[in-house]
Write a protein that binds this DNA or RNA. Structure first.
Lengths: 231, 231
DNA sequence: GCAATAGTTATCGTATACGATTTCGTACTC
DNA sequence: GAGTACGAAATCGTATACGATAACTATTGC
């Protein structure tokens, strides 16, 4: 559950799929960092397949926003500049909010207990802080909440956003010290809302704010003062 | 503005792009209706290109949900069964709500006037009802609202949803008589909210309900009575 | 007459090959 | 010495070819 976030159903076994998984994994785990030039022939050789399936894989990754493809030039791992980051986080805020609200009525006591256990692990993790582990736990926490999501389309959008963020190696938690602590508290508050059967609107708003707060924290440290980053 | 809804930047000129546009157009305009079997070699011949770019185009369409692709079997135009329709409309409700709320502060008096003009055209269209024209005007109306949307990702999600729905030939308006009338009134109410500078929450909620109401109308006629269509 | 199986056909998946385009380096001119 | 033009190398885009897989059909046995 902790590794690469895989989305919808994909056929296994095909070289194309194999290439897709391989390249995606390398992007998400940071082997190919933003700006890395993806040369079809080179990747094909590395994976022991021809260029055709590799090309197909790259275009799939492009559709997911992990890769930027330019005609007759080639593909590069798409970094997320501040503007893109803002777009992605804003979108995530919306779809995560919706996913949480839709899932909430289907989350049982056992699920809440699991999520709380993960969150307590995160709380402990705050002491001798490890951003990588913290980020992974954070994803686990939300995965528990979302696993009952009744709308697979929305869930898919959430996963895409996560992969997008993962391609940035640097977790926001690393840069904004207080954020990790706040995050744990927000998780607990969210669980309380779910337990008490709060209405969908309240839960959605809380879930949105949880993501927005991370975005705000990022913006606060990224843009020293007055200047708004975009629009 | 009224034709196929095109999304983000795509390279022109390539055979692959050409195939993508051609097949997409045929799906959206109904030449290839849901369930239609898309044979790569046949399409390639029709378009005067080889199968490779066609294959690439098909897979792009698959990523957008317009086509269903099965390994070693082939591609078919993906119809939307009631469940898929529900997922799509629910997702649209959310992203359109967000898109409207985000756009609202950027919509000027001139834009409102244009939107209102379109809406009045829709109102007239109610008299001698033409579902196709009505649907197109409906899209125009919302396009005016969204053209200032500051987040291209969200706008893209809206467009994808629209294309998905377009692949169903049958507009909801055709099946649920009262819906078209209500829709026009909801548009006007939405414009009033935007004009008066209502807060984002209010606008978002109104925009969501606008879409949800269409979904509810569909469900009401699709499932005669008690039975919930899914989950 | 029906079911199971073997053979055939249609279609996909991938490899290889080559033309097209871009990029980079070098030489030449001003 | 700087800028431009030419050429070579790298890489992409697409066509063609062939092996692999699944769907279809006919035949055989019960």
């Amino acid at each position: 559950m902790t590794e690469t976030v895989t989305a919808a159903g994909t056929q296994t076994g095909s070289k194309s799929e194999q290439a897709y998984q391989a390249v995606k994994a390398r992007i998400v785990d940071g082997t190919y960092s933003p700006g890395y030039r993806l040369v079809l022939a080179k990747i094909a050789e590395d994976l022991g397949v021809s260029v055709v399936p590799v090309r197909e894989a790259i275009r799939r990754l492009e559709a997911e926003g992990l890769v930027k493809f330019e005609r007759n030039v080639g593909a590069t791992v798409s970094g997320i500049d501040p503007t893109e980051y803002l777009y992605t986080m804003q979108t995530l805020s919306i779809v995560e909010g919706a996913a949480t609200a839709l899932s909430a009525p289907l989350i049982g006591a056992a699920d809440v207990a699991r999520a709380r256990a993960v969150n307590e692990e995160m709380r402990e993790c705050l002491l001798h802080f490890d951003p990588v582990r913290f980020t992974r736990l954070n994803q686990d926490f939300h995965s528990v909440l979302f696993e009952h999501c009744p709308n697979p389309h929305i869930l898919d959008l959430v996963h895409r956003g996560w992969n997008r963020l993962a391609s940035l190696r640097s977790s926001t938690f690393r840069f904004v010290p207080g954020r990790a602590h706040d995050s744990v508290e927000e998780h607990e508050a969210l669980l309380k809302l779910i337990e008490t059967g709060a209405d969908a609107d309240t839960i959605e708003k809380a879930a949105r704010l949880h993501r927005s707060a991370t975005l705000d924290a990022y913006l606060a440290q990224a843009t020293p003062d007055h200047q708004t980053p975009q629009q």
